[in-house]
Design a protein around this nucleic acid. Structure first.
Length: 649
RNA sequence: GCCGCGGUAGCUCAGUGGUAGAGCGCACCAUUGGUAAUGGUGAGGCCGAGAGUUCAAUUCUCUCUCGCGGCACCA
């Protein structure tokens, strides 16, 4: 007798071992049809796995949110089976579910092509139609190893030997022929997967994520509970594509990149207006926040990088310039090696080191919009988001250990306020604590970790822990913001550093008259201007708030009789500091409105004979239908205030 | 860097072993109009670069280069 308790508290008795599917059948036919997974005492169980002892059982239906992960995992298996049926000799490796689908990594001498997708999808549909039974089997490690070795599945054979000794090794049999090593759970049969899936892309991936290992071929797919969901997902992807900063950047004429300067940006007039507006805004904010702005050299002798430790660890990511010593007779054929700075911190320490610093000078908040170069791997480059030449909104706060908490808190408040001005309100924090290889004593780490945590909490932010992911010189906070379509971007950072001040001999004189080491807090809010502007473009889909828009307003005439007045309006707005253009083209107003709307100009000021006569303007906002007629003076005041930089209030 | 895919007009994309195509944009002409496309005419191309096969290559093959999607990387 097995007694099954259901979620509503009711009990059912069964003669002997019973499966989740049988429990469902005992309740109703429709439930038996819809169910995909059993939860036995809270644990995921395959529907056809026998339950032999009394248990609490709840059933997951295909419509339930929870079912997605299972369906996707089964999608991966059906893909793997289809591929092996179509391409004998292909080895299977791993195939997990992902956030919106699954992938499966294969090993095959011949490359797959996306042209194969149609055939593979067709085969997957056949497997679903066949409704192959999926059965969980417990095997011994030796049997699994033998099985895969005999079948030429070297990756699987290697993997099984590394599974923990004390764990049951489960194999899932799918149909008569096909078996895969898997933890499960799975559907009872392939038919329950349905056909709301689609193969998405093909990519290379390294065996076990290590670039030293052989490369496998990864096929990505997506799975949903029904066709409507699948379609919605594909639409969502299209929407994201429309926001792509590379596409919008080209359409709006913001920037370009060309072969001769890979990883660096040619900013066009409109793009640079956006950039410099963001820079003006950041300068305003940090000035109010008591930072001092500095500028440090681009090219710095190798010696400094050796002292700071960068040469040792990162020189292959640095751009090197080698020059002949031309003006030194003593060093006739000697070379001098310089490197473009990949970071600003060593430069800032040099400024801090000039003269004698007192504890009264601390905290010293030093900021630089620092242009850095890093030799990023080619495959890492992406539009203006990941480049080799970029500008950080960098800053280093030199302070005492006792000031870490208050400085962190002040920084987080500034960061939150900046993000809010820029349109981001959902912020997550990741806290990375001490890594295994680190500098500094445990005592110092205890202190700095506690300080960062305390300050984060005091600033009203919750955080998730990233154990062991801190920098070698100190713990770090990373600030992640969520954009308008739910994507996460890591931008800001705050890192406590006890090492660099030591290496570069930064010191201040304390109250006691003795020399002390300051702590350095490395911090950035945007991260880099280039990347952040990319994020802003995608966040707003190019439709920037007035204060950020490269062109804030266009004055457009209806007929040429209003030309003189239109120029008068334009000049008045220019004088008021508004970025405005004048459109006197011999075109219909419909055409002009459409043209400037497509170009995403936030405000269109329409003037015709009537407005010229009455000294008014008709304002139309981007995306809106309504127009508001007001006096020129009122319009100037309105635009002036909307065009102004926000101040974090 | 690795795997797969791609590069044709300013942009989006057709196309072909034998003289290169469309839409939008651009220029010019006409049109003076009331809130998302007025009509006409025209210009615009080393078909990414180099080599090979061929009577002939934008088209087929190879190398390079750049881009795209992942992987690895992101101090």
């Amino acid at each position: 007798m097995v007694a099954i308790t259901l979620p509503d508290g009711s009990k059912r008795d069964f003669e002997g071992a019973v499966t989740g599917l049988q429990v469902a059948e005992s309740i109703s036919k429709s439930l038996a049809k819809a169910v995909v997974l059993a939860k036995v005492d809270g644990e995921d169980w395959d529907l056809n796995r026998p339950i032999t002892t009394d248990a609490t059982v709840s059933l997951v239906k295909k419509d339930d949110e929870e079912a997605l992960d299972l369906l996707r995992h089964d999608g991966a298996h059906v893909l793997a089976q289809a591929v092996q049926e179509l391409f004998p000799g292909t080895q299977i490796t791993f195939g997990p579910s992902t956030d919106d689908g699954f992938y499966y990594d294969f090993h095959r001498e011949e490359p797959f092509s996306t042209d194969d997708f149609a055939a593979i999808e067709k085969q997957m549909r056949k497997i679903v139609e066949r409704n192959d039974e999926i059965v969980r089997e417990v095997w011994s490690r030796e049997d699994v190893h033998k099985y895969f070795t005999e079948n030429g599945e070297t990756f699987k054979a290697e993997w099984v030997l590394e599974l923990p000794e004390d764990q049951d090794i489960t194999m899932y049999r799918q149909g008569d022929q096909w078996v895969d090593l898997c933890r499960g759970p799975h559907l009872p049969s392939t038919g329950r997967l349905g056909t709301s899936f689609k193969l998405m892309k093909l990519a290379g991936a390294y065996w076990r994520g290590d670039a030293n290992n052989p490369q496998l071929q990864r096929i990505y797919g997506t799975v949903w509970r029904n066709d409507k969901e699948l379609k919605a997902y594909l639409t969502r992807l299209e929407e994201a594509e429309k926001r792509d900063h590379r596409k919008i950047g080209r359409e709006m004429g913001l920037f370009h990149i060309q072969e001769e300067a890979v990883g660096a940006i040619f900013w066009h007039p409109k793009g640079w207006k956006l950039y410099s507006t963001l820079e003006d805004y950041m300068r305003k904010r940090i000035t109010v926040a008591d930072y001092v702005e500095v500028r440090t050299p681009q090219l710095v002798d190798r010696k400094l990088w050796e002292m700071s430790g960068h040469w040792d660890k990162f020189h292959e990511h640095m751009f090197i310039a080698e020059v002949d010593e031309v003006d030194s007779a003593a060093a006739e054929d000697s070379k001098r090696m310089l490197a473009l700075k990949p970071m600003n911190c060593p430069g800032h320490v040099q400024i801090f080191r000039q003269g004698i610093r007192s504890y009264k000078d601390l905290p010293m908040r030093m900021a630089e919009f620092g242009a850095c170069h890093r030799y990023e791997p080619r495959g890492a480059l992406h539009g203006i988001m990941r480049v080799r030449a970029f500008t950080q909104d960098d800053g280093h706060i030199f302070c005492t250990e006792d000031q870490i908490v208050s400085e962190t808190k002040v920084f987080i408040d500034l960061l939150k306020s900046v993000y809010k001005d820029l349109g981001f309100t959902e912020i997550a924090v990741k806290f990375s604590d001490r890594p295994e290889k680190r500098a500094g004593t445990d005592e110092i780490w205890d202190k700095s970790e506690a300080a960062l945590k305390e300050a984060t909490e005091a600033a009203g932010l919750s955080y998730t822990l990233n154990p062991g992911e801190g920098a070698f010189y100190g713990p770090k906070l990373e600030f992640v913001l969520r954009d308008a379509i739910g994507r996460d971007w890591q931008c800001g950072t705050l890192q406590a550093d006890f090492v660099l001040p030591e290496r570069l001999d930064a010191a201040y004189v304390g109250e006691d008259g003795e020399k002390h080491r300051p702590v350095m807090l490395h911090r950035a809010i945007l991260g880099s201007f280039e990347r952040f502007i990319g994020i802003l473009i995608e966040q707003y889909a190019g439709k920037f708030p007035v204060w950020l828009a490269p062109t804030q307003a266009v004055v457009a005439t209806i007929t040429s009789v209003a030309d003189d007045y239109a120029e008068e309006v334009t000049n008045a707005l220019k004088a008021a500091g508004v970025r405005v253009e004048c459109d006197l083209r011999n075109e219909k107003i419909n055409f002009k409105v459409r043209d400037h709307s497509v170009k995403k100009v936030p405000l269109i000021l329409v003037v015709g004979a009537r407005e010229a006569e009455e000294k008014t303007v008709a304002i139309r906002r981007l995306g809106g239908k309504a127009q508001e007629v007001m006096s020129l003076d009122a319009a100037i005041e309105l635009l002036k205030s909307e065009a102004a930089l926000p101040s974090g209030e």
